[in-house]
Design a protein around this nucleic acid. Structure first.
Lengths: 234, 234
DNA sequence: GGCTTATGCCAACACCGTTGCCGGTGGATG
DNA sequence: CATCCACCGGCAACGGTGTTGGCATAAGCC
């Protein structure tokens, strides 16, 4: 109750765990990401996290108010990894495409984490940096403020939404994922032209197209639209 | 073990619950949707669901192999509600827009369910019907098979991904959601031009644009791109 | 009307997030 | 170098979760 969580920057006393680990926000987040990758989406557990760190589960509540705050810290870490080292090239379309792909793949590097984190607003440093970068590209390219904001929102939401969707697919247990892919081949690849003529006519490309993510193609369509909005504006 | 789940179509003996309820797949799914809406995303529980139905929790395992299969049934129900009663008008752009908006809003009518269900492939009837409808619109409009399939995939993934994203935002506890909106106003609405000039310059439109969903605007951009692909094809 | 077996119920298991309390220890203070 | 105290790790507990094996019963077929 009202248990105070000391901000990482004000931590003075670092007492090692009985098993010798010295905890920190950073260490906890990294361990959580490892747990997620290794044990699957439902495998991130306060108890397991404690065990992996060599600490009592309840100790973690000295660092995060609860599971939800840990999730936000994970989201922040992912955004940070996405924009780390990014530089504007001056070519707006390549820049936007680069940022989008970076976001998407930083999240997808940890699919289970992506599912948890993609829909959260962190309000922390990395988030502001990313927003500033994207808006900068759009306004420098010549978009009106209102248009820039609209495109910004579409771009970010698109990237995060696809990160969550693709992450969920990747995070499924191996057996389920294989069963899903098989479903496309057996069920939709062999529907009779009588009842489903269009599916039957496109069966080949349809099955082939279901591999991988639709994100890059969709991102390109969004950039197409932005490009024509730009030329029309001039 | 290997407890057999009798398919709904082969059910003969309908024995009423001690409290008088007569169970069925349909009834369980509907009750689950009601529970989700009423108790929030984490409120769908086998035990609560049992209680709401007037049945022992373990009884539900005679209808679904587990929580996951129940999720798929929910997803199927949502797709069904989305395409129920849809008819092609012949104008491809309006038709695609209509299907997309229907999908999105059918899912968002149950935000918590959308989060669970949007990323799943059901492989059931409604899904095939939806695919057939969309492919039909695209091919009738004049797209090559390969292009039609690509646009199909982008459209569906976009709609479901945004359903999950927007659903997650809507499903947050009231207090958290209000805090998030406030964050835009206070944090991003007041960043200094020194460190974040672009955010500062667009603060007004930025805050305003964060209300509501970016889905309709993004969908329109996707349709823009499809339109120019069509005219270029001719 | 009898038989089979589908189906509802009970009890139990292992696990979950979270909290109140205690005790030891780090670091500041003198 | 001694003192003190608040920070922080550990313990035990609470009420909840999904899931399963076994049992009794009643529904529907012959």
């Amino acid at each position: 109750m009202a248990k105070r969580v000391v901000p990482e920057s004000e931590r003075r006393r670092r007492r090692p765990t009985r098993q010798g680990a010295v905890l920190s926000e950073q260490l906890i987040v990294e361990t959580a990401l490892r747990l997620l990758r290794y044990h699957g989406g439902a495998g991130l557990t306060v108890r397991r996290l404690g065990a992996a760190l060599g600490a009592d589960p309840s100790t973690l509540y000295r660092y995060f108010r609860g599971m939800d705050e840990l999730t936000l810290a994970i989201a922040d870490e992912l955004i940070g990894r996405a924009i780390r080292g990014w530089r504007a090239s001056g070519e707006w379309r390549a820049d936007l495409r680069g940022i989008g792909l970076r976001l998407h793949s930083a999240y997808l590097a940890h699919p289970q984490a992506a599912v948890l984190a993609a829909s959260r607003i962190t309000g922390r440093t990395h988030e502001a940096t990313a927003i500033e970068a994207i808006l900068g590209v759009l306004r420098t390219a010549g978009l009106e403020n209102a248009d820039a904001v609209r495109v910004y929102r579409s771009l970010v939401d698109l990237s995060l939404a696809f990160a969550a969707l693709d992450g969920a697919a990747l995070a499924l247990p191996r057996a389920v994922r294989d069963a899903d892919r098989q479903m496309w081949r057996t069920r939709y690849g062999r529907l009779t032209p009588g009842t489903h003529p269009h599916i039957a006519a496109t069966a080949g490309p349809l099955v082939a197209c279901m591999d991988g993510s639709a994100y890059p193609a969709t991102l390109d369509m969004l950039l197409d639209s932005t490009a024509s909005r730009l030329t029309r504006g001039r």
